[in-house]
């Protein structure tokens, strides 16, 4: 429901701020407004038509035929989306899942060694990463990988694109390997940045729970401190983490856009930049739909995770 409203709101936003006519204005020979309008009318972008009417015809196309419209130059949006969405989707999914796992694990590890050396080092590292702009970390990773490759004398880690240009010969497995190889660095980038935040929150959450009365009760039954924390405090302390997964998706999406552009992926992120530059109203809306869907998926996932972890939500 929210997604629908959001997508449609984006449509109007995009109509308001993008001017498809400019794509034609600089073309030679110069065309009149009339001509431009006629050209755009083909794609449902005729500026002479009221925005509401354009929106209605676009919406009915989407709903009835799942046709997401055309760009101002006539490229159907639908043809651009699937493979891009798949690429970005796997990047976002991997980024979220891995960063949550890594971050929570780090949080638990450091919380049980509060003020130890490992805790201090990791904490500093996480604070650093937490504040690192995506661009900086991505480029840093590339430099590192290039240096690494030079050391080894061969390309072990690929730094650009989602696959080797021109494809890889040799059937399914080499292709998969090639894909995975290209996926490594961007995923590491998103994971590292994301996990820093999770690490810091999880650490303080667990530290709070370590002092809870029920941990004392558990210790009073004869469990050692570590056992009591693992069996009793851990689960409650992950509940707020699970709840907040949904709210990080927009940030991950932003991170993914930049990561893609740095690593030269032809994913939704690249498409996002192109569509805005090309005044592609329909393309922009499709990107918005993708983002909204990702957020919604995150929200549903967070709800399920919370329900599994927290009996108070489940039963009531």
């Amino acid at each position: 429901m929210m997604i629908l409203i959001a997508i449609n709101a984006t449509y109007f936003f995009a109509t308001l701020f993008l001017d498809p006519r400019s794509n034609y204005r600089d073309l030679r020979p110069t065309r009149s407004d009339e001509e431009i309008g006629d050209a755009l009318a083909l794609y449902g972008l005729d500026p002479r038509m009221p925005a509401v009417d354009r929106w209605w015809s676009w919406l009915s196309d989407v709903i009835l035929r799942f046709d997401w419209g055309h760009s101002p130059t006539g490229v159907p949006v639908g043809s651009e989306i699937p493979h891009r969405a798949l690429l970005s989707g796997q990047l976002i999914l991997a980024g979220v899942v891995l960063s949550v796992i890594l971050g929570v694990a780090l949080g638990v590890y450091t919380a049980s060694r509060q003020y130890g050396i490992a805790d201090r080092v990791l904490q500093t590292l996480s604070v650093l990463l937490y504040n690192m702009p995506v661009v900086v970390s991505a480029l840093g990773l590339i430099l590192l990988a290039v240096w690494f490759n030079q050391k080894l004398g061969q390309t072990v880690l690929s730094v650009a694109g989602a696959g080797t240009p021109g494809g890889v010969a040799g059937g399914f497995w080499p292709v998969l390997l090639d894909r995975a190889n290209h996926l490594v660095l961007p995923t590491i980038n998103l994971t590292l940045l994301g996990s820093a935040g999770w690490h810091l929150t999880q650490r303080s959450l667990l530290l709070d729970n370590i002092n809870a009365d029920y941990v004392r009760t558990a210790r009073a039954t004869g469990l050692t401190r570590t056992q009591a924390i693992r069996r009793h405090a851990l689960r409650s302390s992950t509940i707020p983490t699970a709840t907040s997964i949904a709210f990080t998706i927009p940030a991950v999406f932003t991170g993914a856009v930049i990561t893609e552009s740095v690593f030269g992926w032809e994913g939704m992120g690249r498409y996002f930049i192109q569509t805005i530059i090309r005044n592609d109203v329909h393309g922009v809306v499709a990107v918005a739909a993708f983002g909204a869907a990702a957020t919604a998926a995150g929200a549903i996932f967070a709800d399920i995770a919370t329900a599994i972890l927290d009996p108070r939500v489940r039963v009531n």
């Binding site: 009760t217 558990a218 469990l223 409650s236 927290d310 009996p311 108070r312």
Partner: peptide, 25 residues
């Protein structure tokens, strides 16, 4: 201590809501 607590000494705490783990039956 873990050999003593629970086996030789049992403790009944005051606040029963916070003394029990909320996520365990």
């Amino acid at each position: 201590w873990s050999g003593i607590r629970g086996r030789r000494v049992g403790v009944v705490f005051q606040e029963s809501l916070s003394a029990l783990t909320p996520t365990m039956s």
